[in-house]
């Protein structure tokens, strides 16, 4: 088990290291003076800020220092939580923008991932059991996984928001509201959250259902299932075992799908103008705010790595074999 975690942490460490390095390197690969060219391309909100920004970023990049010093400094500011200052939302620090957006993104991601995983697994297990269900759940699931997140989001926003007018289609809460700890505000928040959450949930659902169905069918054909059938064990018990064991590869699958799910959340936020990281990234791209973009990149990488680690811990708890120490989840 220690080896298993050691390996995982090494991979995550290397990944983060690489991400930071790429992040440091990419702007320096741009021809000419990166600060000047970035500032020139960006749409800075206040023109008078240009000069201040130039000075600030020249200092931050520290081009007069040797490259390794620059590199070390960038790690230093990273650990201080300093991601620079946004060009687009000058003079707000990038870190502030990001930390303000992250709760919204998490509020969409965490419930939709967990719920779609749980419900999808249940559905898939049911589909593996009954032909009728298999013939309905499976095609629907394939359509759902083939649907681009952004399109389902757009369809739902259009249908439920514009045509039927049931839900709001933009923002995290109504313009007329000021964030506060009141019941009204929470209702408003929830109302804005429901559609983007549902569309994320639905698209992700299909994949889990398909995956669970296939794994459980495989488990039901495994040796232990055959042995139990030969000993006359009721299908209920065999299915319980099969489901339990089929959950394991689905947990690994969750780790593998994180990137896709995060991407899905980002575009869904954009469709709903939801004030999470996705909308921030869109703003950064449209306004050529490279510092904001870089900060968002590191935030997402870090978030995905942490999530991966949590999944590893869960896996060890759920699969006794990892604790016994012989095997681990597929790296």
């Amino acid at each position: 088990m220690r080896r298993y975690f050691g390996r995982k942490l090494l991979i995550y460490g290397l990944t983060f290291f690489m991400a930071v390095t790429v992040n440091w390197l990419v702007p320096r690969l741009m021809p000419g003076d990166p600060v000047a060219s970035m500032l020139a391309r960006a749409r800075v909100a206040q023109p008078e800020a240009q000069e201040a920004l130039r000075v600030y970023y020249n200092n931050l990049f520290g081009f007069d220092l040797p490259w390794w010093q620059q590199y070390l400094n960038s790690w230093g500011s990273l650990f201080r939580g300093d991601f620079g200052i946004s060009l687009w939302a000058f003079p707000t620090p990038v870190a502030d923008l990001l930390t303000r957006a992250v709760p919204y993104s998490l509020a969409l991601l965490v419930p939709s991932i967990l719920l779609s995983w749980v419900v999808g697994n249940r559905l898939g297990a049911l589909a593996a059991r009954r032909k009728v269900l298999d013939n309905t759940v499976l095609p629907v699931s394939y359509v759902l996984t083939a649907t681009p997140y952004l399109w389902l989001a757009a369809l739902m926003a259009w249908g439920f928001g514009v045509v039927w007018g049931i839900f709001p289609v933009a923002g995290g809460y109504s313009f007329s509201m000021t964030p506060s700890f009141t019941w009204d505000f929470f209702v408003d928040l929830f109302w804005h959250w429901l559609l983007p959450f549902s569309s994320l949930f639905l698209v992700a659902l299909g994949g889990w259902a398909i995956g669970m169905r296939n794994v459980i069918i495989y488990e039901l054909e495994s040796d232990y299932a055959n042995y139990m059938s030969a000993l006359g064990a009721p299908q209920k018990l065999i299915r319980r075992y099969a489901f339990r064991n089929a959950v394991l590869p689905q947990i690994t699958g969750l780790a593998l799908q994180l990137g896709v799910l995060v991407a899905g959340a980002l575009v869904t936020e954009i469709v709903f103008s939801y004030p999470g990281l996705g909308s921030l990234i869109l703003a950064a791209i449209q306004n050529k705010d490279f510092f904001l973009l870089q900060g968002a990149f590191l935030f997402i990488v870090l978030g995905v790595l942490i999530a991966n680690f949590i999944i590893d811990v869960v896996y060890v708890i759920v699969d006794p074999r990892t604790r016994v120490g012989m095997v681990g989840a597929a790296a």
Binding site: A19, G259, V262, F290
Partner: peptide, 15 residues
């Protein structure tokens, strides 16, 4: 594998 694809792509693409 663990790097979130879209995030990498938007950094590369943007720069």
């Amino acid at each position: 594998l663990v790097l979130p694809t879209l995030a990498v792509l938007f950094i590369l693409n943007a720069y």
